[in-house]
């Protein structure tokens, strides 16, 4: 069953998802994972928040991935997010020059996370947003959501996703402005104020 026959015309069936579990710590997080913005870039923003479960308790073992365009709306095709040291096998950290658009963050013991990246530009009819993928022990299939930044009501009103949601649910996708380019975005996996999660078809 696990040698997939690709000779037929009708396509092939997918490999099922499983939880990331609790023990990915040596494998997935990497040095500089949350520092996507090139050093000193004037369009740098910081987004931070907490991840909560259905009883409002923070998750100490969630893993978040962020993927987004640069300020001009273009999506980078640049590698080097997890630059490696060929001598030690360790991580060198980003080079501070190139923008890969990709970050990976493990929540702290208190459920807090942050990412420092470039302010995303708009693409097509969409208001600017960062794509986010949430993984955790207990989560059998990862969850996609989006981080929209506040402040542009016109763009939000014409965004194909935001305009479909009622005000309360839409609010879960729009980060709070804390000033100085810092935004607050909490993720609630379940219950009151549950974050809007997406399914791509």
């Amino acid at each position: 069953m696990t040698k997939i026959d690709t000779s037929g015309p009708e396509g092939v069936l997918p490999t099922p998802s499983h939880t990331v579990g609790p023990f990915y710590g040596y494998a997935l997080p990497f040095r500089g994972g949350e520092e996507i913005a090139p050093l000193g870039h004037p369009d740098t923003i910081t987004v931070h928040g907490y991840v909560y479960d259905g009883e409002g308790r923070p998750l100490p073992d969630a893993l978040l991935e962020v993927w987004g365009p640069g300020p001009d709306g273009s999506l980078p095709a640049v590698d080097g997010s997890m630059r490696r040291d060929p001598a030690s096998g360790g991580f060198l950290g980003r080079n501070g020059v190139e923008f890969t658009g990709f970050g990976r963050i493990q929540t702290d013991a208190d459920g807090h996370w942050y990412v420092r990246t470039l302010r995303p530009g708009a693409r097509g009819q969409n208001a600017p947003y960062l794509s986010m993928c949430v993984f955790a022990r207990g989560l059998l299939v990862h969850l996609f959501t989006r981080i929209y930044l506040p402040g542009d009501a016109t763009a939000a009103a014409s965004d194909p996703l935001l305009s479909r949601l009622d005000e309360q649910r839409r609010g879960t996708l729009i980060a709070g402005d804390e000033g100085n380019g810092t935004y607050r975005f909490d993720i609630r996996l379940q219950g009151e104020g549950e974050t809007v999660f997406l399914e791509f078809q």
């Binding site: 939880t19 479960d53 259905g54 365009p69 693409r123 207990g138 999660f197 078809q201």
Partner: peptide, 24 residues
């Protein structure tokens, strides 16, 4: 571990064929 860590609201569907500009 899944009991408190899954959303109860249905996921919001996005039809990717309608928008080639999606970040995802």
């Amino acid at each position: 571990s899944s009991v408190l860590r899954h959303p109860k609201q249905p996921l919001v569907a996005i039809d990717v064929s309608k928008d080639p500009e999606l970040v995802e």
